[in-house]
Design a protein around this nucleic acid. Structure first.
Lengths: 259, 259
DNA sequence: TCGAATTTGTGCGTATGTATG
DNA sequence: GCATACATACGCACAAATTCG
């Protein structure tokens, strides 16, 4: 198991694998910023020549990578002074019995908000019906939401609720700004996260649009089921997280909770 | 927020973004197979011409994607008959207090085994020392392991143990074939998973080699801390999972188990 | 057995994108 | 910015294996 050099795991830059070198380098730099292993104290990147040598490529190629990241808003090169990175530390999103969608990010960002898009009623697919314990084809309400931190999208959730039990959940959610508050209007005083399935994949077209991702980016997808205190499932949701802005933490119950 | 059409979320094939079309298509097909949305009953893919039209590219380009996946072992094209996909369903890897490395996959695969590479002693980095509650620079034992199911690598774990407390853990692990059994030799009768941090990223060179992945593939990385029944951490491990062969499930204690 | 349709495999010329110095 | 080399993508044509009436 060769450690890839002294600076820690650097993704190998390979030729002829279908990914342009400048994109491999851009992805690597973005990952290095998220992990905090790149960039010095004031967020300054090593000079282009140094990066070129480190990656074993021409300086032109590094410049192309930096240009792409600058276009994403991650870096700003300043003529004569160097290239600077936007403050970027991954958000930690806790997962456990007490997981709440809109909370849990606490003081990790200066500014946070959730956009909720009006829900629509539709017929439950077999998968969603099963998750909610309904008959296939039952009416459900779908609610779309997007979470941002400091102006950057960090989550994109699609949730389904039983339309009979929660007919106006979308409006209540949008009004209250919090799912917990909205649920109380329907008599759900408290609830638990029953299970969370986690997968990861490349961003598809919708992810790239909604989360402002570049092609080839990685998203973490969670499939969650929330149950009320009687143990009945009432919410099924799929949430997409940009993998370079968010990480998940599973904690055993009773342990530290971030709020 | 338009739902991405009825044909299912198809990753947009984009030109001039630094990723070759054939690689974008290969990633998309691989994802489609894992999700079960591609390939018919007998695992046969649509003909090359149809795929080319669907993706809006030349047939040569689709062929390049198929060739890459064939090289990975995911597809095998047969002259005159079509292109066939290997039976592929994602393994579900449970995460919770009772998570064990080698178990939990139960009957999901016909054949399972774990390769353990002899451990080496080294000085703990600050991160590892902190996770294990040791002084930075303390001696720790690093154990490398790889899990396979039906001959395909599905996990690649690196674990660290306090060298003072578990001097021959690697040998014991290799002999017993199970971590739980090895730990009992050191007086650890039972243990719990205290926390699991989950991130996702592109596969690096080491992942590609150890897990037989192609560049651009996605890996899920877990950082786990196990504690003994007194609550003292004794193992810190980082595990890489190929995202198209594995998904994680977080369950509340005692609750539903996936079958 | 024959032939037509389907599907993968191969060759080649050309245009564009990527990477170097 | 320029010249060079290589990878990528296209379009067209045809060969080879398989299937089916």
């Amino acid at each position: 198991m060769t450690g890839a050099g002294t600076t820690g795991k650097r993704r190998a830059i390979q030729r002829g694998v279908g990914v342009a070198l400048w994109r491999q380098i851009a992805d690597d730099i973005r990952g290095g910023l998220a992990a905090g292993t790149l960039a010095g104290a004031e967020g300054r990147l090593p000079p282009e020549a140094a990066l070129a040598e480190r990656f074993g490529v021409n300086r032109h190629t590094v410049r192309a990578a930096i240009a792409a990241l600058a276009h994403e808003g991650v870096l700003h090169p300043v003529h004569g002074r160097g290239t600077f990175a936007r403050r970027q530390k991954r958000l930690v999103y806790p997962i456990g019995e007490r997981t709440r969608f809109s909370t849990g990010l606490g003081s990790q960002a200066r500014e946070r908000h959730t956009d909720i898009f009006a829900g629509v009623q539709e017929s439950a697919s077999t998968e969603i019906a099963k998750a909610l314990g309904l008959e296939a084809g039952s009416k459900v309400i779908r609610v779309e939401a997007r979470g941002s931190a400091d102006g950057v999208p960090v989550s994109r959730a699609t949730s389904w609720f039983d339309a009979q039990r929660f007919p106006t959940i979308a409006e209540a959610y949008a009004d209250a700004g919090s799912l917990s508050a909205a649920l109380r209007k329907f008599g759900v005083e408290d609830y638990l996260r029953a299970s969370t399935r986690i997968e990861a994949r490349h961003a598809d077209e919708a992810d790239a649009r909604d989360l402002r991702l570049s092609p080839g980016a990685v998203v973490i997808v969670t499939h969650a089921i929330n149950v009320d205190m009687k143990g009945d499932p009432f919410q099924y949701s799929r949430t997409r997280f940009p993998a370079d802005r968010v990480e998940l933490v599973v904690e055993s119950q009773g342990k530290t909770t971030v709020d």
